[in-house]
């Protein structure tokens, strides 16, 4: 052992290239380590520290205090905000996964049968993903607009149907925010599940054909189990993305009407940058991180153990 370690240390100059080479990875990793340290780890520690102060965005001195924690966790708004966050995240994530899976299945089936237009379908879905979240909110506001020129309501009027209060009714506003989010985010689920579907071994389906399995049985007993890993990884990623972003909401509803669509990320932003309450915002941001981690860990618990892949 010691001899090997010694040999390793004296083996200069290292034979470059592949193979089991004594590696000095530090210089290679340094830029990334610096960025991760300075722009991720240190800020997280600092946010934890700030949570225990009375810091505001405007002055620089901050004293130790647990007031912010009490004030934020006891805030009457927090209950509403957490409820909104739960509904918004659940609705968006379930919508994105179901729609993404449906489209991936359609496209794979279409491609296997040589149907035309499948590339167009895939491109359309992915194009929505490329559109910036802010633009997404603005576009859907034009669709949901309750003014005479709103797309959906004016189409309803043409069809002789009554208009719907898409954005001014609190319940509808949440649904509208979820629809806009699903419109954009489905692409991500679709592409992950599409790749996973394509990598399923064809012989499984051939065996099922020999057993005269129905399409539903093929889906239930081959496709779904084979997709399990991809579905769970996808779920973790989009739960976190959905929890942490608010650009669609801020440009679609601004969190309103009232607080009807104010999710935790937007609430945190408002606390820091509108109320200048740095300590309170830090408390909320840590709460956001804790929820993200807890949900990710929960979903990850269902992942098949390593080595299966």
């Amino acid at each position: 052992m010691i001899a090997r370690a010694a040999r390793r240390r004296t083996a200069t100059p290292p034979p470059a290239g592949g193979g089991p080479v004594p590696a000095r990875p530090l210089p290679w990793l340094l830029p990334v380590l610096l960025f991760v340290g300075l722009f991720y780890l240190w800020p997280i520690v600092d946010a934890l520290r700030l949570a225990f102060t009375d810091a505001s965005l405007l002055d620089r001195d901050a004293a130790f205090s647990t007031e912010a924690i009490g004030a934020m966790l006891g805030s009457p708004a927090l209950g509403t905000v957490l409820r909104n966050t739960a509904i918004f995240t659940l609705g968006s994530v379930v919508g994105q996964i179901l729609l993404g899976l449906a489209i991936a299945l359609l496209v794979v089936r279409g491609e296997r049968n040589g149907l035309r237009g499948m590339l167009v379908m895939r491109t359309l879905v992915l194009a929505a993903w490329v559109i910036p979240g802010i633009a997404n909110g603005i576009i859907w506001q034009m669709l949901f607009s309750e003014a005479p020129f709103g797309a959906i309501n004016s189409a309803l009027r043409l069809a002789g149907l009554p208009p719907v209060a898409w954005l001014s009714d609190p319940g509808n506003a949440m649904m509208s925010a979820i629809i806009a989010t699903v419109w954009q985010g489905t692409a991500y689920s679709m592409i992950l599940l599409y790749a996973a579907l394509r990598s399923i071994d064809d012989t499984l389906y051939e065996a099922a054909a020999v057993d005269a399995a129905t399409p539903w049985e093929r889906f239930r007993f081959i496709t779904l189990p084979e997709l399990r890993g991809a579905l769970l990884v996808n779920a973790i990623l989009i739960v976190i993305m959905t929890l942490n972003t608010f650009d669609v909401i801020i440009s679609l509803t601004g969190g309103g009407p009232g607080r009807a669509t104010e999710v935790l990320a937007l609430f945190t932003y408002n606390t820091v940058f509108y109320n200048f309450d740095l300590a309170g915002g830090s408390v909320l941001s840590i709460l956001l991180m804790a929820i993200s981690l807890a949900l990710a860990a929960l979903v990850a618990a269902f992942l098949p153990r390593a080595g299966r892949r």
Binding site: V32, F39, Y40, P43, A47, L57, V272, S282, S285
Partner: peptide, 19 residues
């Protein structure tokens, strides 16, 4: 670890970084 930090909200980071 590098995969994990990607999951940290921009908000957590931006609040101290702003200062």
């Amino acid at each position: 670890g590098i995969l994990a930090v990607q999951m940290v909200s921009g908000l957590v980071i931006l609040i101290p970084l702003y200062r």
